[in-house]
Amino acid sequence: MNELNTLERRGMAAICTSAGNMLIVAADQRNGMKAVMNAPGGPATISKDELAEAKGDLVRYLGNHAPAILLDPEVALPRLVDDGTLSRDTALVVGMDASGYVTVDGLRYTKFVEGVTPRTVRELGGDVAKMLFYMRPDRQDTNSRVAQEIRQLVRDCADEGLLLIVEILTYRLEDETPEEYERVFPSLVADAAAVSVECGAKVLKLPYPGSAEACAAVTEAAEGVPWAVLSAGVDHSTFIEQVATAVANGASGAMAGRSLWKDSLAMTSEERSELLTDRALPRLRELAAAIDGGRTV
C-alpha cells in the first residue's frame, strides 16, 4: 500500500464524509456540461461566461452540500473561489487534465490544462488535485509512457504537499470489436489499478468494472489504496446500485457528475436553482446514504 503522508491525510479527510468515505461532486466537465444544457441552437451557443454561471449554480445549490467538489481551472477557477461561491466547508479538488486526448500509435494520452501544475492547484485554492490518464494495461506496463507520466505527477504533487487522485479510463482499440472490449473490460480496470498503484498512486478514481466479483478484483489489485467509482454518465438509479455493489466489495466512495446533475442544468439560473435543489440534491443525499450505509451528508 502507498501510504499517505500527513498533508495527504488532511487532503483525504477533506474529501470524505464524516464516516470516512469519499464523496465528490464532479463538475470539471466543459464540453460535456455544455451538451446537457438546453441552449437554443445547441452547445456551440453557450459562452464561457454562461458556462461559468451554470457551474456557479451547480456549486451553490449542489456542490456546497457535499464534502468536496471537482472543478476545472479553465472556466470555474479561480472565479468561484474568489467570488465566494464555493463554501469554506466544501473541499476543492482541481482537475488538471485538458479536454480530449491525443492518439499516438493507437493509444490515447491526455494532457494538462496549459500552465497548470501542482503549485497552480495550490494557488487556485485547491485541497486536492485530480489527473485523468487513459490506459490499456494489456498494451502498457509499468515501463510505458503513461506509467512514467503517473510516476512523475505523483512525485511532483508529493513535493508540493498535495494529494493526487489518479483517474484511469480504459477504452476500445481501433481494431477491437465492442464485444471483445466488453469481455476484457473488467480485467482492464483491475490491471490498470495495479499499474497505477505500482507507479505510486495513493487514491484512484475508476470506472465501475461491471460486477461484485470485478469490484473485489479491483480492490485486491489496488493493494489497500482507496478507490472511488465514477458515474460515467449513467442514470442515477443505475449509479446507486453500482456504488452499493462497489462499496460492499471494497471501494471507498464515489465521484458523481452527470448522474446527479445532467438533467438539471437548464439555461436560466432560476430554472437551474429549482432543478438542482429539488432533483439533484436529493440524489446527492441518496448517494451519500449508499456510500455510508444509511448516513447522509
Rank of each mutant, 00 (worst) to 15 (best):
G294M: 02
D49M: 03
S252H: 14
G41C: 01
L276E: 10
A214M: 05
G233S: 12
A201I: 05
E174R: 14
L162D: 04
E220H: 13
L132N: 03
A26W: 02
P67C: 10
T177V: 11
T90N: 01
D28L: 00
G63W: 00
G41S: 03
K111C: 13
M267E: 14
A27Q: 01
T117F: 11
G210H: 09
V113S: 05
E182R: 15
V234K: 10
E160L: 11
P209V: 07
R151A: 10
I291P: 05
D82T: 00
G125F: 05
V203F: 10
E182I: 06
A244W: 06
N5F: 13
L230G: 02
A221V: 10
T6S: 15
N249E: 09
A193V: 08
P137F: 08
R9P: 08
V166N: 05
E182K: 13
R172P: 00
L206T: 13
A19L: 12
M135E: 07
Q29T: 02
E179S: 12
S259H: 12
A98F: 02
E167L: 07
E123G: 11
A68F: 01
I15L: 08
L163I: 08
V189G: 07
D89G: 02
A290G: 00
G294N: 03
G100K: 06
V197Q: 08
I168A: 09
R295L: 15
L7M: 13
M33Q: 03
R9E: 15
V218Y: 09
P73H: 00
D83R: 03
A26V: 03
D72G: 06
K55Y: 00
L281R: 15
L260A: 11
S18F: 14
C215L: 13
I168P: 04
L164W: 08
D235M: 00
S273P: 00
T238P: 08
I46F: 07
E274G: 12
P137E: 01
T90G: 00
L188E: 12
G250K: 07
T110C: 15
M12I: 04
A248K: 13
E149F: 04
E180G: 10
S273F: 02
E179N: 03
D138C: 00
R108C: 08
L206P: 02
A193C: 07
S187K: 15
T120V: 09
G106L: 09
G293A: 06
R136P: 05
Y171V: 08
G56N: 01
L70P: 04
S264T: 15
V75T: 03
